[in-house]
């Protein structure tokens, strides 16, 4: 256990990645995308200026949910699907804590689907890292709620007959205040998205495309392989036009309410392109972006939406403080003595 501290300890020492690395042996399969995410988080945390003891990592069940064991922070490896309500209780209890939820596609969207929606709409100041590998890894290879239609797995030998959930769409429907997507093999982008998620005051969701090299290898190779990834993805940047492609020669325009891919040298210029505004109050444009795949467009990565709305825990505490300011702090004997009382002598 490291004794360095940059918060309320006596000496201010610069924290490093090593301070956030626990002595537990990491037990993910060699080559798993989770290693990259762990490494980015361990590198990022020392740079945030938060006392180490104020970080709490909470997870559910699944491969990704082993994450807290590998972090030398406060950690809670809970039960399947329930990391978010536990995080809600932690944050409401102590808003000073930096609360991180580590979850997977099964954990967050199947067994914990209800909590996912409600955490996002409540907007507590917590960060959710959703490791989406589109498969059940820990139970050895069944289809997950994000698996493609027709996916052949152990539990769907004739192909899955379920439509997948798109986590970003679901989060936008719940009017989440921060919604982003990144990829395990894009370390710089991933690190940047996690930093932005931390900086956002409110519930932040980062969907991370994560490769399971044992049960679903290559599921995201269209977005990770050097020769194709730039043509298949578009990086969302606030205030910038939607340009993509290996040669940066393609863009997105809006034709009525329909997004359309256009070639920049084919009669279209940059000024014709749709400009991304992540702080737009209405979620409509972010929904359109989240669905450009339906119109033959690339998969967006980056921040879909980042807006400021009051935080649940702050409002709860404000109500409490306002009531105390108005009526004074409660006296327990007075409370017991309240209502219709009478004396017996």
């Amino acid at each position: 256990m490291a004794n360095k501290n940059n918060g309320n300890g006596a000496t201010k020492v610069k924290l490093t990645k090593a301070d956030f690395t626990s002595d537990n042996e990491v037990r993910w399969c060699p080559g798993c995308g989770d290693y990259s995410i762990l490494s980015q988080v361990q590198k990022l945390l020392p740079t945030l200026g938060v006392p180490k003891e104020n970080f709490v990592f909470i997870s559910g069940i699944g491969c990704s949910s082993r994450f807290p064991y590998y972090m030398d922070t406060y950690g809670f490896h809970s039960i399947h699907g329930r990391a978010l309500p536990i995080a809600t209780g932690v944050k409401v209890s102590n808003p000073e804590l930096s609360v991180w939820v580590i979850t997977g596609d099964g954990d967050a969207l199947s067994i914990g689907g209800n909590h996912f929606i409600h955490a996002l709409r409540r907007n507590l100041d917590i960060n959710i890292l959703l490791f989406n590998n589109r498969i059940y890894g820990l139970t050895k290879g069944q289809y997950s709620p994000t698996s493609e239609f027709g996916k052949v797995t152990k539990s769907s030998p004739y192909g899955s007959v379920e439509q997948p959930i798109r986590p970003v769409n679901l989060a936008l429907a719940a009017e989440a205040t921060f919604v982003a997507r990144s990829v395990d093999r894009w370390p710089h982008h991933l690190s940047e998205m996690i930093r932005k998620a931390y900086e956002h005051k409110g519930t932040s969701l980062v969907e991370i495309y994560q490769n399971c090299n044992i049960f679903n290898d290559g599921v995201f190779s269209d977005y990770t392989e050097k020769d194709v990834k730039d043509d298949n993805t578009i990086v969302l940047e606030d205030g910038k036009p939607l340009i993509f492609g290996k040669e940066r020669d393609k863009g997105i325009i809006l034709d009525g309410v329909t997004p359309k891919v256009v070639e920049l040298n084919d009669g279209y210029s940059v000024s014709d392109l749709l400009v991304h505004h992540e702080k737009e109050e209405s979620p409509v444009m972010s929904h359109i972006l989240a669905n450009i795949e339906f119109y033959g467009g690339p998969v967006p990565v980056g921040i879909f939406r980042s807006i400021d709305k009051p935080r649940y825990e702050e409002m709860l505490i404000d109500q409490m403080n306002d009531t105390i300011e108005k009526n004074g702090k409660g006296d327990i004997q007075d409370l017991l003595n309240s209502g219709h009382t009478w004396n017996v002598n």
Binding site: G7, K52, N54, I61, D72, Y74, V90
Partner: peptide, 15 residues
């Protein structure tokens, strides 16, 4: 031992 306490970082869980 509650989160926020210096030096007591530890992991709890259902295992």
């Amino acid at each position: 031992a509650i989160p926020g306490t210096f030096g007591l970082e530890h992991r709890l869980g259902g295992l």
